[in-house]
């Protein structure tokens, strides 16, 4: 499938519109089965464009435990429905709670899939795609830079976490309050470094005459192909039909 997407070199606008469709459905639909179908379609599309959802999921292993924790919390604090698991007279998990938790997980996975679809185009192509869709260049540039910096920030979180442990701190032996206190130490240097990086970046882009002229020209010329039109037709029809039926 990925080979086909390379062959046709899809327009980034097609990908952006498909992501818009997926995220709209993810936001509006509440039924677990429907959300599951949207996710499956999203995974299929990301695979078609050359992304690998399951490989990405493997990289996000640590985040998954946090997601599962949030699902359990959602489930615990949702009242109503019939109980699935009780301790004494307390309903720990109800069917409505479980539904909300699963819905949350599916929505997050749909967002991850959307990110993966966007990541199959280069930053420069994606900026051009956003501009051609009518959004200001500054906004497109900001978005692309933001996406580009995400892995760097994740890397810094990891480095600080390692540095803390290398001070002889064993997380497993710490109490919950100590863990929370240490978390603030992880956050602070990452935020400080992000501010520093953005300062340096702003100086760098200013030095390269960013926004000197009102109109910005580009060497990249985007053109819809027949395959783009076909995909857009399928995505928009599918989305509208789903919304109409539900």
């Amino acid at each position: 499938m990925g080979v086909l997407s390379v062959k046709y070199n899809f327009d980034p606008r097609t990908k952006l519109i498909i992501v818009l469709c997926l995220s709209t459905l993810g936001l509006i639909l509440t039924d677990i089965y429907q959300l599951t179908i949207v996710l499956m379609v999203g995974i299929g599309i990301s695979n078609f464009f050359g992304g690998n959802f399951f490989k990405l999921l493997g990289r996000l292993k640590k985040m998954l435990s946090l997601l599962i924790f949030i699902i359990i919390l959602q489930s615990l604090f949702t009242k109503g429905g019939h109980s699935i698991f009780t301790i004494g007279s307390f309903d720990i998990i109800t069917n409505i709670g479980l539904n909300r938790g699963l819905g949350y997980l599916l929505r997050v996975l749909i967002i991850i899939t959307s990110g993966l679809i966007i990541a199959t185009s280069s930053d420069r192509d994606m900026i051009q795609g956003i501009v051609k869709l009518g959004l200001p260049y500054e906004f497109a540039f900001m978005t692309a830079i933001g996406i580009k910096f995400m892995p760097l920030l994740i890397e810094e979180f990891k480095d600080t976490y390692i540095a803390i442990q290398l001070k002889g701190i064993e997380f497993k032996t710490l109490s919950l309050s100590q863990r929370f206190k240490i978390s603030s130490y992880i956050l602070t240097p990452v935020i400080a470094s992000a501010i520093n990086k953005s300062k340096q970046l702003s100086i760098s882009v200013e030095n390269r005459a960013f926004r000197v002229y009102e109109q910005r020209t580009s060497i990249i010329d985007l053109k819809f192909t027949h395959m783009d039109y076909l995909l857009l037709f399928m995505a928009l029809t599918g989305t509208l039909l789903t919304l109409y039926i539900t």
Binding site: I162, L166, K167, G168, K172
Partner: peptide, 8 residues
């Protein structure tokens, strides 16, 4: 060994 043990 954990990283904490190594760090010590």
């Amino acid at each position: 060994m954990t990283l904490g043990e190594i760090g010590k």
